[in-house]
């Protein structure tokens, strides 16, 4: 049993007019075998939270902790975090021209597993994982994410999830840009990995549709850089029904009137 604990996390980014605080005290704990959905309006800081956990250099943590089984994740380099068992399926996966998907996957698996996987076994493993996600084998020889459609990129993020077998995975809008069939296929991929492992999942999404496939244990409402309410799956239905008005309150009202909050 593992725990990913985020405590009072404050994060800022550098802007032209100086540092700007995006996360304002995030508290969230995810245990093995739990799935937490995080829902919140555009710009509330969900991706910032995801990137901060992964260690993207653009974000500066000014306060708080991220602990993986008590170990301070914030002191680890990006690659160390991944090897410690953290995984981020990105909202906008990066294109890496010239590096083939198969070479990349093998390098990543070698790094996270601590040794190069045996060739014959590996080839089969990748082939199966790709076919489960209905990814054409020809993608293996293409450059990482280069020229992939939005949906193809998302499938490859989940492919990496299933091959790298993390303890905790943050899925940042993995459902966005997927057609109906792809959503089902990708959800199935996540569920299969959930079933065969003890992974804890933070699922960032705007839509309840994916939550019908991947059922969350907890739902958190994320507004203005922090978690403002947490509840069971029924909270997602309430959000679907009523939006975020109840949580953004006067801020949303006044923005409608085009006045600064």
């Amino acid at each position: 049993m593992s725990t990913l604990e985020i405590r009072d996390l404050h994060v800022e980014v550098e802007t032209e007019s100086g540092p700007k605080e995006i996360l304002r005290g995030v508290d969230l704990t995810v245990n093995s075998n739990e799935t937490h959905a995080i829902m919140g309006p555009n710009g509330s800081g969900k991706s910032t939270l995801a990137y901060s956990i992964a260690g993207h250099p653009k974000y500066t943590v000014t306060q708080g902790d991220v602990l993986l089984d008590g170990e301070n994740v914030l002191e680890m380099a990006v690659d160390e975090r991944a090897r410690a068992g953290l995984f981020l399926a990105m909202q906008y996966p990066v294109e890496v021209p010239g590096v083939s998907m198969s070479n990349f996957l093998r390098s990543a698996a070698t790094a996270t597993r601590g040794e190069a996987p045996k060739v014959r076994h590996w080839v089969k493993e990748v082939k199966n994982a790709m076919s489960d996600l209905e990814i054409d084998p020809s993608f293996a020889e293409r450059s990482v994410n280069e020229g992939f459609s939005g949906g193809e990129k998302k499938r490859h993020e989940v492919l990496q999830l299933s091959l790298l077998k993390p303890k905790f995975a943050v899925l940042d809008e993995t459902d966005s840009g997927l057609d109906v069939d792809a959503l089902r296929i990708v959800s199935k991929g996540v569920n299969e990995y959930k079933a065969q492992s003890d992974v804890g999942i933070m699922l960032i999404t705007h839509y309840t549709r994916i939550l019908r496939y991947i059922s969350p244990d907890r739902v958190h409402v994320f507004v203005n850089g922090k978690v403002v309410e947490s509840g069971g799956p029924e909270l997602a239905d309430e959000l679907e029904e009523n939006g975020y008005v109840r949580f953004t309150g006067s801020a949303a009202e006044s923005s409608k009137e085009e006045q600064p909050a």
Partner: peptide, 22 residues
Amino acid sequence: QLFYLMSRGVPEAAARRLVVRG
């Protein structure tokens, strides 16, 4: 690109090698 590769566990030196080789 470096961040993406490293976020998959690939150490920085190896990630740079991958990109330059590519």
